[in-house]
Amino acid sequence: MASGGARTRSGPPPDPNALRRDRKSDGEWTVLPAEGRAGEPPAWPLVDHDDSAWGVRELELWRTLWAKPQAVMWERLGQELEVAQYVRRLVEVEQPGARANLHTLVRQLGDALGLTIPGMHTHRWRIADGAAEPRQSSVRTPAPPARTSARDRFRVIDGSAG
């Protein structure tokens, strides 16, 4: 039986808008362009399937994914093969009767590529303000100041002016 200790993704995910920003472990957040990656996608790196319908679907997903904001980082990190493997597995999952463990693998690959919210938080990526960004406020609104004296609190209760 395994004993305690740190585990992957244990605890709350990092929050780019957290009030406390002085933790060394928090690291820097990378802001991805809301408009996505510009230009043509890289060449498809995998061997094509025999079934032409699979190949058409793979290339459709490939083009769609390489236009996303996360693709800026994939290109920088040279993750063409990882994205292609995700695409191939995703096409397999779309088929009727796909194995349950394949669904889990696709989710994990999506997390690893930053295609999910938890995956983006793990990588400390956020999308710049724009239509593609998840709802997040970049500026926290401070709470209204608390009353400073007992006298002020009693004014509220009985309505007296002093």
Rank of each mutant, 00 (worst) to 15 (best):
L46H: 00
V47P: 06
V47N: 12
H49K: 07
W54P: 04
W54A: 07
G55I: 03
R57V: 03
E58I: 02
E58F: 04
L59W: 05
E60T: 10
E60W: 09
L61P: 00
L61S: 01
W62R: 06
W62T: 00
R63Q: 00
T64P: 06
T64C: 13
L65Y: 02
W66I: 01
A67N: 05
K68W: 05
K68H: 05
Q70W: 01
A71N: 05
A71C: 07
V72T: 14
V72I: 08
E75K: 10
R76Q: 14
R76K: 12
L77R: 11
L77E: 14
L77I: 07
L77Y: 05
G78N: 13
Q79G: 05
E80M: 09
E80N: 14
L81D: 08
E82P: 04
A84T: 13
A84V: 15
Q85K: 09
Y86L: 14
V87G: 03
R89N: 12
R89S: 10
R89I: 04
R89Q: 08
R89M: 10
L90F: 01
L90G: 01
L90M: 02
V91C: 02
V91A: 01
V91I: 01
E92Y: 05
E92D: 08
V93N: 07
V93M: 07
V93T: 11
Q95N: 09
G97Y: 15
A98V: 05
A100I: 09
N101F: 13
H103T: 15
H103V: 15
T104I: 07
T104F: 03
V106S: 05
V106A: 13
R107C: 02
R107V: 01
Q108D: 04
L109K: 04
L109Y: 06
G110S: 11
G110T: 03
G110V: 02
D111G: 07
D111V: 12
L113K: 01
G114W: 15
